[in-house]
Each structure stands twice: as structure tokens, then as C-alpha cells.
């Protein structure tokens, strides 16, 4: 197995039915939130935040259930810390963000100059200029996870259908 090269960023193109995006997001977010600040770009951030928070509660209950039913010490400790993390992450929409916000739900135009995220989830179609502007907010080695079609005119990145 070859070693991964150090990338500028990772780009993950996810082909998921629109109604399953919040489910995928809620399952995937905990992993990426532990890496650094996360932005979720949506057309209606308040609505998506509300749905993801409901799913988040379900995940917390699932982790609690697993925690209660396991006897293995290492696994139990891992799940305890997972629970702690899940409960402590701070979600916010752009107008209510503060220094403690870990997971920001925002439109494209609400991002602030200097915002840097370890992960950006993109749920709205973008033009090439919008995507270029968005990438300025992605930290080195960060992940752009897109649920939408990819602009075909981005140099160096093939259309998703080719692979």
C-alpha cells in the first residue's frame, strides 16, 4: 500500500439523495468536528441545522445505548469520550456564531474574511468563482465534502462522473 501524498486539500464528492443529506451529515460530522472547525454551507442554514440537531440527539442516544451495553473497558472509555465530545460541540447559524462555535451553518455569502475550516460541507450548487472563493476558507489538508454537482470548468479536477 502506497503512502498518501500530502495534499493541499481533500475533495469528497458524495452522491446522495437530497433527502439523505442530513443523515449523512449527522453521521459524518462527529468525525470531522474532532479535527477542527466545520462549516456547513446551505441554502437555508436554519432549517438544515434544525434537522441535523434532531439527528444529533438520536446519535447521542445511540452512543449512550452502546455505552450502557458494553463491558469492555477500552470501548466503554472510548464511548464515554465520544459522548462528551458530541454533547460539547457548539452549533450555530452565522448570525448567532461566537468564539465557541465549532460547527457553523451558513450561506456562502455569510462567511467572514479569515474564516478557516478543517471541513466544509457544501450542500448548494456553486459556480466556479463561488467555489474558488469558498476554498479560501478551507484550511491546509482540509476536506471539502460536496453533495452537489461539481463545476466542470475547474482546472485539474475531473468531473465526478469519470471515476
Amino acid at each position: 500500500m502506497s503512502q498518501l501524498p500530502l495534499p493541499d486539500w481533500f475533495i469528497d464528492i458524495r452522491h446522495i439523495q437530497p433527502q439523505r443529506i442530513s443523515l449523512d451529515l449527522a453521521r459524518h460530522l462527529p468525525r470531522r468536528a474532532s479535527v477542527g472547525p466545520v462549516a456547513v454551507i446551505a441554502e437555508r442554514p436554519t432549517v438544515l441545522l434544525s434537522v441535523v440537531k434532531k439527528r444529533w440527539s438520536i446519535i447521542i442516544r445511540e452512543v449512550q445505548r452502546q455505552y450502557s451495553s458494553t463491558l469492555q473497558a477500552a470501548k466503554k472509555e472510548g464511548l464515554r469520550r465520544e459522548l462528551e465530545r458530541l454533547r460539547n460541540y457548539q452549533f450555530a447559524i452565522a448570525s448567532k456564531r461566537n468564539a465557541a462555535t465549532n460547527i457553523l451553518f451558513s450561506t456562502l455569502c455569510e462567511l467572514q474574511v479569515g474564516d478557516q475550516f478543517a471541513t466544509i460541507y457544501l450542500t448548494v450548487p456553486t459556480t466556479h468563482p463561488q467555489l474558488s472563493a469558498l476554498m479560501k476558507h478551507l484550511a491546509p489538508k482540509g476536506f471539502l465534502i460536496t453533495y452537489t454537482s461539481w463545476p466542470d470548468d475547474v482546472d485539474g479536477i475531473p468531473p465526478h462522473a469519470d471515476i
Partner: peptide, 11 residues
Amino acid sequence: MAVYTTFPHDH
């Protein structure tokens, strides 16, 4: 789903 890296161009 697919993960691409932008440097080197895609693996």
C-alpha cells in the same frame, strides 16, 4: 462518493 486530492492531481 469519492475522495480526490488536488495535489498531486487525483490518485
